[in-house]
């Protein structure tokens, strides 16, 4: 809107005012001017421009002088084509008046917020960097490994003459679901044990901590089992592969779940029942 209206101004007036003419044409022709005008002083200037049609120099100057104090220097500097400065250094500033002063602080705040968000993201990522501590934390890994070995050997080894110590070990070293699983697996053995005078020895052949995180551990245990019937000195053996879950109970790692690989369907059913 402002453009077309103003164009007439420069042409009609007598040749006496190159400056003003230049000013108006520029304002009209150059892209930045309309934008800026919209942003700030647009209405004023439009109205005035109309009045000016007949009017002369003074009015435009006066009018267009008002905005500059408010305008920030940057926008004018950026938008101004090189040629302008010489031709109309003073009027130009007003013509591209207000890239309003709040732009800079707002931009800084936006940048700050973006950076803050980025920082927050980094911080979140650094928290999320977590690795399984198995073997990495060698002290805890070997503590877990040792205690689980011991727990498996003690609670699954069994001597008909000393039932008490096995049960005590199981109660101390197993917890939660594992206690139930233990009873399911070992219950039948206990029934026949006294008559057959059974001695069961479990030895862990190899074991390794496969996961250690947040007070929980998973241990893969390979065990050998030797069962001796002392009534007739018959003995049999077997191998077992267990995946044992353990929780940290105040420095003592207790077994809270067991999975047996290669278990019979019967055993699996018993374990599932827990």
């Amino acid at each position: 809107m402002p453009g077309p209206r103003r164009r007439p101004i420069p042409t009609p007036p007598s040749g006496g005012r190159p400056k003003v003419a230049g000013l108006h044409r520029r304002a009209a022709e150059e892209a930045p001017a309309p934008e800026v005008l919209e942003a700030a002083g647009a209405p004023e200037i439009e109205e005035l421009a109309e009045e000016q049609e007949a009017d002369e120099l003074k009015a435009p100057e006066a009018v267009e002088w008002t905005p500059p104090p408010a305008s920030s220097k940057k926008p004018t500097g950026e938008k101004k084509p090189v040629g302008e400065k010489k031709a109309a250094a003073e009027p130009v500033e007003p013509a591209v008046p207000s890239r309003p002063s709040w732009i800079l602080p707002v931009a800084l705040v936006v940048v700050g917020v973006l950076l803050g968000g980025l920082g927050g993201f980094f911080l979140f990522k650094s928290r999320a960097v977590s690795y399984d501590a198995a073997l990495v934390d060698s002290a805890t890994t070997s503590a877990v490994n040792g205690q689980i070995r011991e727990a498996v050997e003690k609670s699954f080894s069994y001597n008909f003459a000393d039932v008490e110590s096995t049960e005590k070990a199981a109660r101390e070293l197993l917890t939660g679901k594992a206690l139930c699983q233990y009873n399911a697996v070992f219950g039948p053995v206990k029934e026949v044990a006294p008559q057959q005078k059974l001695v069961v020895t479990v030895r862990v052949v190899s074991s390794a901590v496969s996961s250690l995180k947040d007070g929980r551990a998973t241990v893969l245990v390979f065990a050998d089992q030797v069962t001796t019937r002392t009534t007739d000195n018959q003995s049999g053996g077997g191998t077992a592969m267990l995946r044992v879950s353990a929780i940290d109970d105040g420095g003592r790692w207790k077994i809270d779940n067991m999975e047996m690989f290669g278990a019979t369907a019967d055993q699996n059913r018993q374990l599932q029942g827990c």
């Binding site: 700050g112 917020v113 950076l115 803050g116 980025l118 920082g119 927050g120 980094f122 911080l123």
Partner: peptide
Amino acid sequence: AVVMLVFAVFS
């Protein structure tokens, strides 16, 4: 903005 820049660099 500067404080946030420092924060972002640090984190």
